[in-house]
Design a protein around this nucleic acid. Structure first.
Lengths: 340, 340
DNA sequence: ATATGCTCTGCAATCGTTTGCACAGACTTT
DNA sequence: AAAGTCTGTGCAAACGATTGCAGAGCATAT
């Protein structure tokens, strides 16, 4: 009675009709074609016999796999895991399965996995690894499988994406700091080839202007990656520069942690001697020492929305690309205060 | 030149042979059957034309999908994400794709997803949601798809699993505490229907004995889930009991965090007034306030090893079940100290 | 009464592989 | 030289669905 041993043919024999009739009866779209009573018998038999369509046969015939591929730089990074969860939640409800691939930020692995996804004929792709200029994404687009970018987008606007409004996020942070009285705030930027890194930095600059603070190139340091270690090094450079500042804003929470590390080794206490603000509000950022003031990115929602758009696109490939921008929210905690 | 438009038949026509010959030439196992020169021409043509086998056709014929399903309670939980990453790493290298499903600890969702995996004919399953007595797992076993349990296992020993040595882990923690001079240590246990919760508690009891400390039922509180909130409540009960103790060991880091919360609201300072130890050494446990002394669970390795065993089992279904136990490692940080 | 249309079902092809079987030709063996 | 391997290839049948097409049966319109 168990696994998909029972086929359309079995049911057909049971009921005494042709397999094609069974197929039609079981497919909602064609069910109307078959006589009510027969259709009833067929579904009854199918249930009784425990019929489960063979997905390979189905896919071979239709070229649909009810599968989508998800590409992330790091499954274990709290700034990405929620995205996958959001995707999984909506896709599971729609009967899709999600295949994930971890790329550790290496382009070659990204390409390899996208190729694998394509070979497997996934119905769609959600990619969270995009660079602002990304040949891989270009290929994907021209190649034609539905695609939506999550969190990180390309400069290209005619491709679906769902991200958070990074620049106003960055701007808001600056206003918060300005309001507290900070005049000289340093910035530890993320990789500029990523939209997140780029736009958050843009937000910083705008925030400076909006609050009549002047831009000082000596106050911004760039990281090659969104990592603790990079953050620590940047903070170290900042501190060593001898420049004067009362706050540091980080391009994300991971970098902020690195800043925490460096401040601590230098004997500075964050929140009192100097303010620090992060970005993303990733898991446990409220548990750090001190709890981190940060901009909340609605990652779960981003994932869910990306999945929804992808489904639209799968259902109707003619759907024009759609880009949505979620709004982040400032979370005030203990790492910021009035300037010392 | 692009997607899998080119089939065996195309190559066959190009080279002037029968598709079956092409199939044999391209399959390493049967390549020897075909004349060297022809085989060479075939691979050359295949490369040139960009041949990619159609996975659906392959799977339909062979019933192999080169896909494995992974079931976890929570993708975003740092105590699970690394497992998936470990699995993904080894499976990716072997050409498999991994499908993940998030179950949020709800049995019905576990079943639904396992069913889905089966319908999709995954070649194997790794499950990280098992309860000690788990009907779903029993079914899986009798049903026959290769299966390995990760982190959480059933009481059943004839089923492959890879876990960490929880009881000696728990025991070691107690020895550490005893060595510091603690005589009365409380325990906040995890769900007893999970092997982790159960065995870690067992380790606690053994550790008590090993160090000539007596068991006091009033000093152990049970949690219904490995969550911060449950931990907080348990700590609250403990504190309210009026009992005397100088340390609390938590069944995992999440619970430990909850304990931190409660201590803080009660004005107790962890590491000085009272010691706390966690379990798992999940991401950021070194960043908490204070940095958490905890038992490191080699989650990445567990995932990787689970994947390896699964591959063995897939390659040869007759392989007897294998259970491996990884050894955890105590990480000393700031949350433990001499009794106040 | 014939023509026309409509509804339902069956036939058979197809998707792209793999693989058992038959067989042709060459190579041993006696 | 006849008989018996052995090798390499092709043929065709699966695997289990979907779907265009044809036609049977019946009702309606002419």
């Amino acid at each position: 009675m168990a696994s998909s041993r029972v086929t359309l043919r079995d049911i057909a024999e049971e009921v005494g009709v042709n397999p094609s009739t069974v197929s039609r009866a079981l497919n909602p779209k064609t069910r109307g074609m078959v006589t009510g009573e027969i259709a009833r018998q067929i579904t009854e038999a199918a249930d009784r016999m425990g019929y489960r369509p063979n997905p390979f046969a189905y896919s071979l015939r239709t070229n649909r796999s009810f599968t989508v591929g998800v590409l992330v730089p790091d499954l274990t990074n709290p700034a990405f895991a929620p995205i996958i969860k959001g995707i999984d939640n909506v896709l599971e409800a729609s009967g899709y399965s999600v295949m994930v691939a971890n790329t550790d930020n290496v382009a070659e692995r990204e390409r390899r996995n996208v190729d694998k996804f394509r070979e497997r004929h996934v119905d769609g792709l959600v990619i969270a690894t995009a660079r602002r200029h990304d040949p891989l994404i270009d290929e994907c687009r021209t190649e034609g499988t539905p695609l939506v970018l999550a969190v990180r987008k390309t400069t290209d606007s005619d491709i679906s994406s769902v991200v958070s409004d990074e620049v106003t996020g960055g701007e808001t942070i600056m206003s918060h700091l300005a309001q507290l009285g900070h005049r000289r705030v340093a910035y530890v930027a993320g990789p500029q080839e990523l939209s997140t890194g780029f736009e958050r930095h843009q937000g910083y600059v705008r925030g400076l202007n909006a609050n009549n603070l002047e831009y000082d190139a000596g106050l911004v340091e760039f990281c090659d990656a969104f990592t603790e270690e990079e953050g620590r090094r940047a903070a170290s450079r900042l501190l060593a520069s001898g420049r004067d500042f009362t706050a540091i804003v980080a391009a994300n929470d991971m970098i902020a942690i690195g800043i925490y590390d460096e401040l601590q080794t230098k004997g500075l206490v964050c929140g009192r001697d100097i303010s620090v603000v992060g970005y993303d509000d990733m898991l446990f950022s409220s548990k750090f020492d001190p709890p981190l003031t940060t901009m909340h990115s609605p990652l779960l929602d981003i994932g869910a929305e990306a999945a929804r758009i992808l489904l639209e696109q799968i259902d109707d490939p003619e759907t024009p690309p759609r880009s949505v921008k979620m709004t982040p929210e400032l979370i005030l905690r203990k790492s910021t205060g009035k300037p010392a």
